[in-house]
C-alpha cells in the first residue's frame, strides 16, 4: 500500500510541481497573475483581486495588455504558498529568458508580472514576452518538437521563438474531388487530417497529447479593423480563420471522426 505524502507549508515545493496536476507558487510579498478559479488551496496571507482593481494600474500597464481577458484574470499578492490546478489537466511551469512564447489562451494558468502578456495575431492565442515563469495546463504532458512540423490544430499548445504557423491543406483534398464525392455519397468520409498548422524555421513547437480541446476560454473579439485577422467585416471567419472547404464539417466532423 502506498502511503500518501502529506504536505505542510514547509514541505510544499516553492514554484514547482506538487504532482503532475498541481503546481505550488510561493509568494513572498510578491504578485502573480492567475486565471480565475484555478487556485485550489493556500496557506498564509494571500489576497486575490480582480485586475480591474484600481491599485494595480501600474502593474497592468507593464504586464497585462489583453483587455479582452481582463475579467478572466486576478492578481494574487501576499505571502504564503498557493496550489494551482485546472480540471486535473497536467500543469507545468516554463521559464522564459528574454524570450517570447505564444500559447493557446485556455492553456495559460498563471504568470509572473515580469512577463508581459499580449494577444497574439493568431486568434485565440496569447503571447508572453520577457523574462519570468509561467504555468500552463495541457491535456497530457507537453511534448516539445522542432520544425519542420505539421500539427493538428487541436493538438497545438503553442510555440516559441519560431515564426507564426501557416495553414497547410492536403494535396488530395485540395483537388476537391475527394471531398465533394464523399460529402455526396457519405462513403469513406474525409480522413479528418486534411488541414494542419505548418511550422517552419527555427524554434520550438509545444504539443499536447490529445485532440480533445480544453474548453475554449472566452478570448473576446479583436478590434474590427481592416488588416486585423478575424477582425474584418462580417465578424471574422472569412479571412482570419480557417476557410471551410466543401465536404468539411469543421468541429462536428472531428468530433465524430468522419
Amino acid at each position: 500500500m502506498s502511503t500518501p505524502v502529506v504536505f505542510d507549508p514547509m514541505t510544499l515545493p516553492s514554484d514547482d510541481n506538487v504532482n503532475a496536476y498541481t503546481f505550488c507558487v510561493e509568494l513572498k510579498g510578491s504578485q502573480w497573475f492567475l486565471q480565475k478559479g484555478k487556485m485550489i488551496a493556500y496557506y498564509g496571507q494571500i489576497d486575490f483581486n480582480g485586475i480591474g482593481h484600481g491599485r494595480f494600474e501600474r502593474l497592468i500597464r507593464t504586464s497585462f495588455h489583453s483587455p479582452l481577458h481582463a475579467s478572466d484574470w486576478v492578481v494574487a499578492e501576499g505571502s504564503g504558498k498557493m496550489l494551482l490546478a485546472d480540471r486535473a489537466f497536467d500543469v507545468n511551469s516554463f521559464d522564459l529568458e528574454d524570450g517570447n512564447l505564444t500559447i493557446r489562451a485556455g492553456n495559460l494558468l498563471a504568470y509572473q508580472p515580469t512577463l508581459a502578456l499580449k494577444q497574439s495575431i493568431v486568434p485565440g492565442f496569447l503571447t508572453l514576452i520577457g523574462t519570468g515563469k509561467f504555468v500552463a495546463a495541457s491535456n497530457g504532458p507537453v511534448v516539445f518538437m522542432e520544425p519542420p512540423l505539421r500539427v493538428d490544430p487541436q493538438a497545438l499548445v503553442g510555440w516559441a521563438d519560431c515564426p507564426s504557423p501557416c495553414h497547410h491543406y492536403d494535396h488530395g483534398y485540395m483537388k476537391g474531388v475527394m471531398g465533394g464525392l464523399r460529402s455526396l455519397t457519405g462513403i469513406g468520409g474525409t480522413s479528418g487530417e486534411e488541414h494542419q498548422f505548418e511550422f517552419v524555421g527555427a524554434g520550438t513547437v509545444l504539443l499536447q497529447s490529445t485532440e480533445l480541446l480544453m474548453p475554449e476560454q472566452a478570448t473576446g473579439a479583436v478590434p474590427h479593423e481592416p488588416g486585423v485577422p478575424g477582425g474584418g467585416p462580417g465578424g471574422g471567419g472569412q479571412h482570419g480563420s480557417t476557410p471551410r472547404m466543401p465536404g468539411q464539417l469543421g468541429d462536428l466532423q472531428r468530433r465524430f471522426g468522419l
Binding site: 502529506v6 504532482n19 496536476y21 498541481t22 480565475k36 478559479g37 487556485m39 485550489i40 488551496a41 489576497d47 486575490f48 483581486n49 480582480g50 485586475i51 480591474g52 482593481h53 484600481g54 481582463a70 475579467s71 486576478v74 496550489l83 490546478a85 485546472d86 480540471r87 486535473a88 500543469v91
Partner: peptide, 30 residues
C-alpha cells in the same frame, strides 16, 4: 477578498478555512 470594480469578482471569493490539527485532501480540479 471580494474587492471589485465593474462587478468583477476575484473568482476566489468563497473558501473553506480549516483550523486545528489534521489532514485535508484536495483534488487538482474544481
Amino acid at each position: 477578498n471580494f474587492r471589485t470594480i465593474m462587478g468583477e469578482g476575484s473568482g476566489e471569493s468563497f473558501q473553506i478555512r480549516f483550523e486545528g490539527d489534521g489532514l485535508v485532501y484536495v483534488q487538482p480540479s474544481e
